[in-house]
């Protein structure tokens, strides 16, 4: 009887611990870009922390900032420029962890088109992703002093679909690619690396922080929420490190969890191996120097047409409060 009571008490303890529900809204569809979260869920790392985590995949028509503003998620992954833009527009998002140390956004050109360096850009047609992903590009063009409105001496900008057709069809001289996704698609399409000239945003001095974890500022006033987030970040980073060490298993987990059924294992394995290079340098804690570089990049290109932010972010745009507990 006593044993039974203890068991019951333990069980009730366990259920009260499980009462911590966390909903995560991803920036994009289920793919290895988010391997850490799926691995943490699949391998039970969240459960060990007493969390019940729901992962909502995103897509081309989903802005995570809008989802969190509407109360559809507790925490989101997004790029820092989009988060800072949201902050300036009255949605106080706070970076609580930064699993991506490096950015995967690149810019690739066909050598055939004659582009060798950035000096060859004037008069070219360049493919850019919008929907909040355009800020680094505009910062870069501002840095190079190239206008983007199609006038003489500038560049023509295309809103590129989320694929590489524009380059393959030669509709654009250069396109945006993610190192872990579209770059592989270009290679898969039969174009070898030495036929391409690829620019990395960070090397061009316009790097921005990509996938970070963001929550709403007012919720951080609640210590219980900070505690829950610390558990979430700890388990997520454990997931990321596991995924880096076991890329093939992580890719399988992604394909299993992909409800759309659109992901292929080989492509996810490729993506995982590339994403691992970006996350390897991070223990989850945001490096303030990276934050400053992102802000400097964005402020370099303030114009009425492309306002990511118009002034340095005010208030608490990032905090170590969560990672300090998580990494203790």
């Amino acid at each position: 009887m006593k044993k039974f009571l203890t068991a019951a008490a333990l069980a009730s303890l366990a259920t009260s611990a499980q009462a911590e529900d966390v909903t995560l809204q991803l920036k994009w569809v289920t793919q290895a870009q988010f391997a850490g979260y799926y691995v943490a869920k699949d391998k039970g790392f969240y459960e060990e922390e007493g969390l019940t985590v729901t992962i909502k995949p995103g897509g081309p028509d989903i802005a995570p900032e809008q989802v969190i503003a509407g109360g559809g998620a507790d925490i989101i992954t997004t790029w820092m420029p989009a988060a800072l833009a949201a902050r300036e527009r009255g949605l106080p998002l706070v970076n609580i962890a930064q699993p991506f140390k490096e950015g995967g956004l690149k810019f690739t050109c066909l050598k055939d088109s004659g582009v060798e360096t950035t000096a060859d850009f004037p008069g070219r047609t360049l493919g850019v992703w919008f929907f909040g992903n355009e800020y680094p590009f505009y910062a870069w063009m501002a840095k190079l002093g190239l206008n983007t409105d199609g006038a003489e001496g500038g560049v023509t900008v295309l809103k590129q679909a989320f694929n590489v057709d524009a380059l393959l069809q030669k509709q654009a001289d250069c396109i945006s690619v993610m190192s872990y996704n579209e770059y592989g698609q270009v290679i898969d399409a039969g174009i070898s690396e030495d036929q391409l000239v690829t620019f990395t945003y960070k090397d061009e001095g316009v790097g921005v922080l990509e996938d970070g974890l963001y929550v709403l500022e007012d919720r951080l006033a609640d210590p219980a929420f900070v505690e829950t987030m610390a558990k979430f970040v700890r388990a997520s980073m454990k997931g990321w490190k596991y995924a880096e060490a076991n890329p093939d298993e992580a890719a399988e987990i992604i394909v299993e969890n992909d409800e759309s059924g659109a992901q292929r294992l080989e492509h996810q394995q490729y993506m995982m191996s590339e994403v691992a290079k970006l996350t390897a340098g991070s223990d989850g804690k945001l490096d303030p120097a990276d934050f400053d570089q992102t802000v400097a990049t964005l402020l370099a290109a303030v114009s009425p047409d492309n306002p990511a932010i118009t002034k340095a972010p005010e208030g608490m745009a990032w905090t170590h409060a969560v990672t300090d507990i998580a990494l203790k």
Partner: peptide
């Protein structure tokens, strides 16, 4: 699904992303 940087569909999808 791809456009120059002018047009109503471009504006809507881009501005949603910028909030």
């Amino acid at each position: 699904f791809g456009s120059p940087i002018v047009g109503m569909g471009f504006r809507i999808s881009t501005e949603v992303g910028r909030l």
